[in-house]
Simulated scan of single mutants.
Amino acid sequence: MTGTSDFLIVGGGIAGAGAAARLAPDASVTVLEMEDALGRHATGRSAAIYIRNYGNATLRALNAASEPVLTSPEGICEESLLSPRGEMLIATEDELDDFNKYLNGAEGMEMLTADQAVALFPLLKKEGIAAAAIEREAQDIDVDRLLQGFARLARRHGARFVINAPAQRISRSAGVWRVETPNGVFEAPVLINAAGAWADQIAGLAGVARSGLVPMRRSAAIIPPPDGVDVSGWPLVASASDGWYAKPDAGKLMVSPADEDPVEPHDAWVDDMVLAEGLHRFEQAVTMAVTRVERSWAGLRSFVPDRTPVVGYALDSDGFFWLAGQGGYGVQTAPALSRLVADLCFDRPSELPENVVEALNPARLF
């Protein structure tokens, strides 16, 4: 198989599919995915929640810009991708500094008493809560509908998705990038690096300076709630120091140690000791004991040093476009970032504030 297009996107997760959906109406696009399905890694292992106040100031601006699309996803799917959940932050006495840092600059956060926090998440130990607050507008995201909706939109405009196509060699000649894969050779004047945890490896293959991106493992487990307890209407609850979080999931609880262990890019798996330690921290905050883990998994959240995504053309190589470093914010920022990709590629004004676009610019890293 061979192919020539205007844009060649490496990576078929939420970032690559979103970029394809926004580029395809005005250009020819090919997406190369190394796995046998789209969204196999970080996208498919997301906690699947929209939290307006999650991340630094740049990320919070991207979250806000994405919300209208998630609520009214015209062209992507027929109805909202969001459903009510809420996100509650709790702090022990030792976590009050972290709690106050999170609330600094936050919008829509409501302070709660310990009694109110326990009323919302009845498993919590009241005596351990020194402070609590809730973002009631935090909502679950239907990640698969968003990913598949982006892919359908891209395909309707002629984009091609090629699976089982990991990049083996990348070269540039006469203004054209050439990517060789086991499933064919593909060319385009613009190469968009949306390879997630593998983004710096793609840069290395292309002879482009690496961004300093570090993949970090994040683990999670599904545990049953106490017998007879309906958790479906409870909010996500998280410790202010990022020691753990828990979220209702199909009648059970998803609990994560909120780990961020640097690893090489790979198909991540759970470190049993890390998971056990995280479940222990969860147990210290609640009245239940964890007696059974029904299943567990891990994914990779990839960050550059300033923990802000990298979006824009590389300084050191023509036609190489970064779309990487989304960390744990990739799904909820995808609507805003996919529009920005198209605006930058087509040299159009962006709806995002200038300072936000500049904060994403790869130039800051080099």
Rank of each mutant, 00 (worst) to 15 (best):
D316Q: 14
S241L: 09
L123C: 05
V185M: 01
V190K: 11
I90E: 08
A154I: 01
A363G: 06
G149V: 10
E264A: 15
A106V: 10
S232Y: 01
G158L: 00
P349D: 00
L352D: 03
R301D: 02
V331D: 01
S80H: 11
D343K: 09
L253C: 04
G330L: 01
D142L: 12
V162Q: 08
V176L: 10
S28G: 09
Q148K: 13
G204E: 15
I90K: 09
I14K: 03
Y54F: 15
A159Y: 04
D227N: 07
T58Q: 12
I192V: 15
L360C: 03
I129N: 03
N183W: 09
R152S: 08
P68I: 11
L360M: 00
V31N: 01
L340S: 05
L360R: 05
I90M: 07
C345G: 10
A238I: 06
P215L: 05
S72M: 11
A285S: 06
A336T: 10
A132W: 12
A167N: 03
D144T: 13
P225N: 13
A209V: 13
D36F: 12
S66N: 11
L344D: 01
S239H: 13
A199I: 06
E127Y: 07
D343G: 02
W322S: 00
G39H: 12
G175Q: 14
L70T: 10
A363V: 09
L236D: 04
G13Y: 02
A314E: 12
R136M: 04
K126G: 01
G184T: 12
L59C: 11
E35R: 15
R295Y: 12
L323Y: 09
A174L: 14
I51L: 09
A91H: 07
A240W: 12
L365K: 11
D306K: 13
P68F: 14
L352C: 03
S211Q: 13
F186G: 00
L123K: 03
T287P: 08
A57H: 14
R85S: 01
D230Q: 08
Y329R: 12
E264P: 06
V118Q: 04
Y50V: 03
H157C: 07
A188G: 02
R295N: 11
A19Q: 02
Q326N: 08
L253V: 05
K101G: 04
R169H: 05
P68E: 12
A250D: 14
T92P: 05
A15Y: 01
G39I: 13
I141K: 02
A336M: 13
Q332E: 09
F282M: 06
F282P: 02
A64T: 14
A197Q: 06
T308A: 07
T4W: 08
G299S: 09
A238T: 08
R210S: 13
H157D: 10
R145Q: 14
S211T: 15
P68Q: 11
E135P: 00
